[in-house]
Design a protein around this nucleic acid. Structure first.
Lengths: 185, 185
DNA sequence: ATTGACACTTACCTACTAGTAAGTTAGTGT
DNA sequence: ACACTAACTTACTAGTAGGTAAGTGTCAAT
């Protein structure tokens, strides 16, 4: 059995993907873990504290995915989309991207969480810009000047498509990816 | 004073954009309207009934926006993006697109609402494909064969960018739109 | 004058929310 | 043996959620 604190964070991450931050409850979490609600309050006094911990967990995952892709042997031109596929792979079946879920609840969250989410959102773009830069240095993306804007389009469409996918099915996401690759070429 | 039923639907639409479907309450709605919760239950017995009514309201808005753009005098090549701007204009300040909000809560909603949302999501794509077809007939979009996939990319990135915009600010959405126009050209 | 529909209100129910205070148990260090 | 701590549980608070039953006031048609 792994560390309980980590266990709670992982389960919360899953719950956020399934229901969003405001809609999951300590009680539900506790029942899934087979402990009492108060036990979770022992580890994370306020729901906001757990939220911050989950944000940090997401950030770690983002950094790890970036490192894996950056250090991989594949061609630099393929890395941006490989990164997206890598990230999508770790989502819950029919779950929404946890960052999107947190962005959706943004207005209702405590300020420290808002700051973390802002930071996380910006980091997601920055990391992707780095991969695009490398790809461009290796001769790809000749038609695009502004790599930040390109990152914004690619990340945005990925996030949007993940939402539609839950309702209209897996093909939606596949069609989006294929067409996006075509446009960006 | 407009019809109370309509008033409730409009206020719910605003609330969905601000907090999502599962996170707004009859109590809150009632207080904003200056009536009791039971009065709203009189008009919409279950929350799901209100949800269906809001979906129909959104569908009406979608159809109206389509008609306005289609019948407008502007060049057919400009209509797809004009349609997006028209739709975004009607969103609450810092609110998410209501369809996105409903998609996010999709798994927790009663089945009749799920069906409506599915229908609505598909319709959004279909309507946009129609505008793209007209644009292509007028000589635009020469490099793209599959207009459905193109619609999927454009709608997805719009939806994704609207999420980020709440956290990272208005420029995010503007950058996305400019770059997307560049790619689609 | 009575009926009946409409649009409510009052008062309630049960279930669930985050959060807390106080007590318990098991293990560790001295 | 004693003190201390980590990791809980039990039992509670106050507030909110969706939903309902029964009653009230207003108005139009008969």
């Amino acid at each position: 059995m792994t560390n309980r604190k980590t266990q709670i964070i992982e389960l919360t991450l899953k719950n956020i993907q399934e229901k969003g931050f405001t809609s999951f409850s300590y009680d539900h979490l506790a029942k899934e873990l087979g402990v009492t609600k108060a036990s979770i309050h022992y580890h994370f006094e306020k729901k906001g504290d757990l939220g911050i911990a989950v944000c940090e967990r997401i950030q770690k995952g983002l950094e790890e995915a970036y490192t894996i892709i950056r250090e991989s042997a594949m061609a630099a031109e393929e890395k941006p989309f490989a990164f997206i596929l890598q990230r999508v792979k770790f989502l819950e079946q029919n779950g929404v991207c946890p960052i999107s879920a947190l962005q959706a609840d943004y207005q209702e969250l405590p300020q420290p969480m808002q700051e973390k989410i802002q930071q996380l959102s910006q980091m997601e773009i920055d990391v992707f810009v780095e991969l695009l830069k490398e790809a461009k240095q290796h001769g790809a993306l000749k038609s695009t000047e502004d790599l930040e804007s390109l990152a914004i389009v690619i990340i945005s469409s990925t996030k949007g498509a993940l939402q539609y996918k839950r309702v209209l099915g897996e093909e939606f996401f596949q069609k989006m990816l294929l067409q996006l690759k075509e446009l960006v070429k």
